[in-house]
């Protein structure tokens, strides 16, 4: 009996050790990035690297002084909020209709964007947007990023709509409610948390998306992610400012993701896994 208890304790201890090792490997690079962003410029590139230093905000000040960081951030916000709103506007009714009618091809059609390489769409978009003079416009960026947000909204909301008992709708129908009314007045309030999760995931993935803005934005509409090259250029000697930029760019998605961490994985697999 004591033998078994000993083995049990031994296994538990071994598991904790592995958990700590995994945690350190996962966290260390990010912690290093954040630490470096607060280091005085001469200590960022110190070798051997230093762990103890007097923290400073110099790098952040330098970043806003030498690059139009804030206007890039504003561009990112416009494109991300715009494409998330568009994704919700188109995605909510579509998810409801797919869930109700069980006709799933509209949902599957949007998945094509999740599978095909982005360049496949970017080539024709570039030719088309150039013809109508829309390269560099917020509209082109928002439309292209909505291709990312729409499938997220639809596939995160589908299980939520599926979870509403049919009898709720049937009762409303008997009362003479139109389908559209049932969606907005009855179904939507019932899946409010699902809508919140889908909005946050759509926001995160639109914010993080690199490829489209690389080609479709110009100097005035460049998003933070597409401007990363500028920071690396600046940062070839200024690691501190580069790490400050990296920290600030990563902050919004990380904070938002922490809010929905519980529902995140099932949402990210677009319905392939119920977590």
């Amino acid at each position: 009996m004591t033998d078994a208890a000993n083995t049990d304790r031994w296994i538990r201890w071994l598991n904790t050790v592995q958990l700590v090792i995994a945690g350190v490997l996962i966290m260390a690079p990010t912690v290093w990035m954040v630490l470096s962003s607060f280091k005085p410029s001469f200590e960022v590139t110190a070798y051997p690297p230093t762990l103890i230093f007097s923290p400073t905000l110099d790098n952040y000040v330098e970043l806003t002084r030498t690059t139009p960081f804030l206007s890039y951030a504003l561009n990112s916000l416009i494109v991300t909020v715009g494409s998330t709103a568009l994704g919700l506007l188109f995605g909510i009714p579509a998810a409801f209709a797919v869930s109700w009618t069980r006709i799933s091809w509209p949902a599957i059609l949007t998945l094509a964007a999740r599978m095909a390489p982005g360049t496949l769409f970017l080539l024709p978009w570039y030719v088309m947007f150039r013809q109508v003079g829309m390269i560099g416009s917020y509209t082109a960026l928002i439309l292209s990023h909505a291709v990312i947000t729409l499938p997220i909204v639809i596939w995160v909301l589908l299980p939520s709509f599926d979870g509403i008992p049919r009898s709720v709708f049937e009762a409303a129908q008997v009362d003479g409610c139109s389908v559209t009314r049932i969606l907005w007045r009855i179904a939507l309030p019932l899946v409010a948390s699902g809508v919140a999760v889908s909005a946050i995931l759509a926001f995160v993935f639109s914010w993080n998306y690199f490829l489209f803005a690389l080609v479709l934005s110009n100097g005035d509409t460049k998003t933070l992610i597409a401007a990363a090259f500028n920071f690396i250029g600046e940062g070839s000697t200024q690691w501190g400012a580069l790490m400050a930029a990296a920290t600030l760019i990563a902050l919004p998605p990380l904070v938002l993701a922490a809010l929905v961490q519980r529902w995140l994985v099932s949402g990210l697999t677009l319905g392939a896994v119920k977590g």
Partner: peptide, 9 residues
């Protein structure tokens, strides 16, 4: 989840 929620860039 922080590694895969941060932008790959």
């Amino acid at each position: 989840i922080s590694p895969f929620m941060m932008p790959p860039v």
